[in-house]
Nucleic acid binder design. Structure first.
Lengths: 342, 342
DNA sequence: CTGAAAGCGCTTACAG
DNA sequence: CTGAAAGCGCTTACAG
């Protein structure tokens, strides 16, 4: 027993205010009217003792933890900071705590540390959870909101993500309409990545709606990764396949694409337009400054957290929320813009 | 009372295994030898019921939460992701949970949500906590490790930070020795920022050890911010003060510096060398690629978390940990390096 | 409007 | 090696 037992409890307050502990509890949760006079005594006693209730005890008694969990695979990536900023903005506003899990733990480690008993609800980013675990959690009535990922067949778990398709269609159309590009490469993201498949759909629809045939030899693996993308672009160039633009799938892939083009002495944007997706912090600093689609990642975080809190309160919630993206036209597509103060 | 009461408890297991709850508890915490036979019965019962102990109840009984908290002002900044990666790597390894606080909450909001009863210890980033709160927490025996910030006078709170002085001295010396720079500007960070003052000390020592006098007119406000830095550099240039290098204090300030230099048609690195500090993700993508000092932020996170866990276990801990920095020489200082595959 | 009492699900001296 | 019981600090029907 290593309890310091220093902290003052509800009993101490009750004794000092000369009421029962139940009364203190009621005052704390103001779910019953107290007589003005007792209320004052209680408040005075709480002040004097500098009392604050023990959250763990409260949690055990109420079966609420006042915290939500964020589960993800790993925290890498530039979108992580804005995502978390969004989530925290709303947990803070609504007086919830945030617990961070990465799924390494959920796979290998002591399972006690992970699970619904710690949280009132879970935000699951991408494929942060195995489908099986997700299903179990959902069936045990744990409120869940998915981020950038759709629910498994038949499960009604709300999702928040962005307008991947519309954004992609818009930027590819821009390439065609504003810059007369005709042979546009697309770099796919990781297999199974939903953002990537929507972006591919947007790409295809843009081409089709402009009467272009889809040339599958222009669709390559980029993996949302600069090195993979650089390799794919090198291969394409060496194969002698002609193209006049690249929609890289995400900004990281744009980095590799720009590098490969530079190696091959192909000028961007004069000979080849390059556009990305995400609008990461480094996008304006690439050479040339990257035209891309802005993903409102902080909004995604806010919205997801807000919806999870609604779910926790048993309020109704839409099942799919799509946040609008926005075209950011800098130089790499062929548009010109002052570069120095971006 | 909205308790689903679905989950199985230690009593259920005890009943099934035909032992007392105390025995289950002992098995869980393996702090007493159980007879082989009971151990097997208990394990079988736990498996059958798919039991996992309730962390909140456990926490109430033991006065341990198995979670640590990270407190900070706001989560902006590129160093945040690596910092958190480092922290999570160790909390995961040691089976701790991580709770994220931002200090907005600690200032305005319901104080119940913040505090030692939620966590076994706290990681405090920069000035994430008012000095008064820090002192109170420390005096109430809450284990604390400070990150990039030193303890208030007289308090023995461990700190982990980086070798700001040595890194700065090294890069400024590089400017002098390798590139014959003689009039080197320094851009200060925000007032009171300790990283900044150590960097300034390193800058001064580098100049002095090379026999240069310090010209205070070359020390300006940069605020670790691109806009402030751009303004300061504009003013310096317009004042006609001569300089041949800028140590920008951090990488963000380097962005503004490069922009101001470009506006003024001063070529980097031919006319002016520019070096930063941090080695943020975007550093290699600036034009020219930024020479800078690498701050091992993930290591800072790991080390801080590891030391906090030691503190929690009452193991001894050094009071100041300084992690080594490293010179990253790219192009902006005048060194040359292949740029495309960085 | 207020109190006495049971309960949340564990852990841990204390006995045996 | 194991059990009975008290306790962790709250909340919440149930009475009055």
């Amino acid at each position: 027993m290593k309890k310091p037992k220093n902290s003052t409890t509800i009993r101490d307050v009750a004794r000092l205010a000369d009421v029962s502990v139940a009364t203190i509890s009621r005052y704390l949760n103001n779910n019953t009217l107290l007589s003005k006079e007792t209320a004052q005594r209680v408040q005075a006693a709480m002040n004097e003792l500098n009392f604050s209730p023990h959250p763990v005890a409260r949690s055990l008694a109420t079966n609420r933890t006042n915290t939500i969990g964020l589960v993800m695979n790993d925290i890498a990536g530039d979108f992580f900071t804005p995502l978390l900023e969004g989530i925290i903005a709303t947990t803070e506003e609504q007086n919830y705590n945030l617990l961070i899990y990465t799924s390494n733990r959920t796979k290998h480690a002591n399972p006690i540390l992970f699970g619904p008993k710690y949280t009132d609800g879970l935000l699951v980013f991408l494929n942060g959870l195995e489908e099986e675990d997700l299903i179990n959690l959902h069936q045990s009535n744990q409120p869940i909101v998915l981020i950038h990922h759709s629910a498994p067949e038949g499960l009604n778990i709300p999702t928040v993500t962005i307008e991947n398709k519309a954004g992609s269609k818009a930027i590819v159309s821009h390439l065609i309409e504003a810059h007369q590009r005709k042979r546009i490469v697309f770099l796919r993201g990781p297999a199974g990545n939903e953002d990537s498949s929507w972006r591919e759909t947007g790409y295809r629809q843009a081409l089709e709606s402009h009467g272009f045939a889809i040339d599958e030899s222009l669709i390559l693996q980029g993996n949302f990764d600069r090195f993979t993308s650089q390799e794919s672009m090198r291969t394409l160039i060496q194969a002698g396949i002609q193209f006049d633009a690249v929609f890289t799938g995400d900004d990281d892939a744009a980095i590799g694409t720009l590098a490969a083009l530079k190696e091959a002495n192909l000028h961007v944007p004069e000979q080849v337009s390059v556009v990305g997706f995400d609008d990461q912090r480094l996008a304006p600093f690439l050479t040339p400054a990257l035209s891309t689609v802005h993903a409102p990642t902080d909004q995604v975080g806010m919205t997801a957290a807000r919806h999870l809190l609604k779910l926790i309160r048993h309020e109704p919630v839409e099942s799919v929320i799509l946040l609008p993206t926005e075209l950011i036209l800098r130089n790499s597509c062929g548009c010109s813009q002052a570069i120095s103060t971006e």
